[in-house]
Amino acid sequence: MTAARRNANNTPMTGPAIETEGLTKDYTTGFWLAKKKRSLDNLTMQVERGEVFGFLGPNGAGKTTTIKLLMGLTFPSAGTARILGRPVSDVGMHNEIGYLPEQPYFYDYLTACELLDYFARFHGYGAAERRERVERMLKKVGLETAGKIQLRKYSKGMLQRVGVAQAILHDPQVVILDEPMSGLDPLGRREVRDIILELKRAGRTVLFSTHILGDAEMLCDRVGVIAGGKLRGVGAPKEIVGVQSHGMEILFEPGSGAGAAGILEKAVRMGERYRIEVAEGELYGAIEQLRAAGAKILSVVQVRQTLEDYFLELIGAEQARTSAVEVGEK
């Protein structure tokens, strides 16, 4: 069915799902709109079909700006963007695109059911199909019991879930999600991750933005890192952010055995516990040593460069200090 619709819309079946070329956006600011601020600078990138692409960058990097340009909510100062081979100004192809806005807000006088039913109408579904889809989507995002409650009574996280539901309601080829995990509890994050993986399995293209490294790493085939409005690099998550291993980190509680002194010297005390960083090759030796000393090993983790470190490297300490970056929970 989607194939038939795609053909009817003359959407080419090959080529990248999303491509931008020299995409640039200047915002004018100030009372007289005289000051110009470049929020996105010459962005050229491609997202292949069937790929989950993470758009990674600190707050204010230009992620939302890019996504709004792709959705035709704002218009580029320069450059072009195409989705499924068609220019983004072509609203007809929105049948093939799902979009979750950042911090979504919906008509608060509607219930979740009514909102989804309203949106479904634009895709031309009949009453029976609308009902079926709305029910299915609400279940998928874990709102099946809240469907009849007006959205004004929803929490931020619940709105986020409704937002995800409306983005995938019409089974689109390309799904664009702006910060889909923000505002969600751990369970919600997990559910959204599952939904993205499910979309991937179904061969859909997903582009999502995040400032949380963990999310990108866990889901993406490729990530693009953006900071200060410029694309800093594109590649598999490992290539981009996990390249230089800084060794291994061992967390332990010291025992009373002999021979511990040598190791404790190198370790950093954290309350009751100690932390020690060793090169990868020395890991087993260090563990042996700790065992011998009667220490209780709590965890062994690979130490990698954090996103923060990466941005520091990329854009220099000066700029990065002003942009808040979190490293999400592992």
């Binding site: 959705m71 909510l73 007809g92 929105h94 979750l100 806005p101 979504p104 919906f106 634009f122």
Partner: peptide
């Protein structure tokens, strides 16, 4: 103002 328009204009609505 409330940004309810974003999701709507992402539908096939001119």
């Amino acid at each position: 103002e409330k940004r309810t328009l974003y999701a709507l204009l992402a539908k096939p609505v001119r």
